[in-house]
Design a protein around this nucleic acid. Structure first.
Lengths: 136, 136
DNA sequence: GCGCTGATTAGACGTATGTCAACATAGACG
DNA sequence: CGTCTATGTTGACATACGTCTAATCAGCGC
């Protein structure tokens, strides 16, 4: 199978994270700080789109809130859709860089990627002191 | 500009349908705190989906970062798509509760909804102690 | 009123997306 | 080896989405 066309995740933290990718830095500027560039918007949109589905959001939340920070597919597959659909959504989340997966014996465990989550949080951060050097 | 002066009540949803959007803003429990419920996931997914498009993300960022916290359509419509498409995306953002619009004379001004932005940020917040529940 | 500019709406069209049933693969266990 | 359980993949389908052009609505100035 060729993953050549797969969307590059925002973060390469999956295995042996070492260098912050360019996309990481590009994606960390709050939306309200300055207008987003084209490439930034495409990278960030991939993340938001990955969470833009109720089922994916529940799967992601289930993994993120699961004890130990990881969850077996069997633990979270009760979201009202068929098992292949669950697998499909988990793959989407993985491709978006939000989750990582690891097979241990019979089961496959998913784990959240905290750095990507934090990057998205920063994007939505409101400027408490926007860009106004107030009274000085 | 300090948007602190504009601390709006909660959410008024200038789009017309008010009930849904309020639920959106009320959806504030971090994704990693506990598994998201069905309704919560649908509400939150609407928000994320609204930002899951590069053009919308750029429009939103343009409004959010614009001087005065608001922007005329004419100021932000240079995103590489036709003007009706811009209007379409702005409508989507409005329906998602992320923007509000107001016509003043010839031009229509868009403004970000800080409460919704903050709600999304809270959703992505990482728990301070992931696998160490303090009080069970 | 008429025309002009700005913005939204309507309709159409191609593509992406979410879903499922069916099949394939991976490991465990007898 | 055979089989059973757990995940992933394939192919098909209906729907949603993003985009455009053309038409319509909303103020402003002549």
């Amino acid at each position: 199978m060729s993953n050549a066309t797969r969307a590059l995740p925002l973060l390469e933290a999956g295995a042996g994270v070492s260098g912050e990718d360019v996309a990481v830095a590009a994606c960390c500027a709050p939306l309200a700080e300055r207008p987003l560039g084209v490439e930034e918007s495409e990278a960030a949109a991939r993340m938001f789109k990955a969470l833009g589905d109720p089922v994916r959001l529940r799967l992601f939340s289930a993994v993120a809130s699961h004890e130990g920070g990881e969850a077996c597919v069997c633990d979270i597959s009760d979201v009202g859709v068929s098992q292949p659909t669950v697998s499909h959504h988990l793959k989407k989340l993985r491709e978006a860089g939000l989750l990582t997966s690891e097979r241990r014996g019979t089961w496959v465990y998913y784990r959240v990627e905290p750095a990507v989550l934090a990057a998205m949080g920063r994007l939505l951060a409101l400027p408490s002191a926007p860009s106004v050097p107030p009274a000085a």
